[in-house]
Design a protein around this nucleic acid. Structure first.
Lengths: 148, 148
DNA sequence: TTGACAGGTTCCAAAATAGAACTTAGTGAT
DNA sequence: ATCACTAAGTTCTATTTTGGAACCTGTCAA
């Protein structure tokens, strides 16, 4: 199978990755969540080639994860903002950060940390089920595989 | 920057992606969470080339996300099992599934669904802060960027 | 008229992936 | 003993994707 065919799969993991599973894509979105929205800024921070960045932004716009917005004319200049669909990726990003901080040690200092606006303390993300309020673990879930 | 250099970054997003951000890697892990542990089974389900699968499994073992375990000798046969570090990725996977189901419509039926073992209902994952029990959103979090 | 800024595009070389065939070590049937 | 089959890889070539650098366009300011 080719990567492009992923979007036609039934599995939600495959479909999700067809949108955000490309190299660099989640790092572009990280920058958008940090408020960095302009081509040159993202490119400089990531050290990604302009070529690839242009491609990723185009795809994310086509998928309605980012919205390309003109912030000045003459000359026309654009920035990229998260749509609601893009903002909905926040739990994925935060879960990834939490996993990394616990399981992938930094060589120096870890670059960013997330603080609760309410308590000022370091965030301790736990994925819970809305119905019960209890943490979701591998054990607390059954998987129903459809059509197979 | 090259993809391989990501692991030396300070940012936890970058470090995490250096482990699981490769093409196909999360799909391999999805299969492991579903209990599919053997080379040929994973390869057949994913339609990934054997070459790439062997490479991914090697890297995941090197990163201690999977453990290669012999399940018979004569001839020697191996399977791949999630380590604790691998199991800790469950919230990332579930968040991704939840995002996909809400934001990336399937063409036919969505392949799998997750049910609460306790209620039997469809899982509704919410990322909460352990300290307050409240949902984590873009708005409820402040980001501290270190050394910058 | 020269330089800077911003957001790209174009080109070529290097690296990764797709697809298929081949290898190795056994098992069981003919 | 020969053949077919299983499982877990490896090897090969062709195609795609990235990496890196240079170039293009429109506008302003010196």
């Amino acid at each position: 199978m080719k990567w492009d065919e992923l979007k036609h799969e039934d599995c939600p993991v495959a479909r999700g990755l067809s949108v955000i599973g490309d190299r660099w894509t989640m790092l572009v979105l990280r920058d958008c969540f940090l408020g960095i929205r302009r081509f040159d800024q993202i490119q400089a921070r990531l050290g990604i080639t302009r070529h690839v960045l242009a491609d990723r932004l185009r795809k994310l716009e086509a998928e309605n994860v980012l919205r390309r917005e003109q912030y000045q004319d003459r000359p026309a200049r654009f920035e990229y903002r998260l749509t609601d669909k893009g903002k909905a990726l926040y739990p994925v990003l935060v879960s990834l950060i939490a996993w990394s901080e616990q399981n992938v040690p930094a060589e120096g200092e870890s670059g960013i940390s997330l603080l609760s606006r309410e308590t000022g303390e370091k965030l301790r993300p736990v994925l819970t089920d809305a119905a019960t309020g209890k943490p979701i673990t591998h054990r607390s879930v059954t998987v129903r595989v459809k059509g197979g």
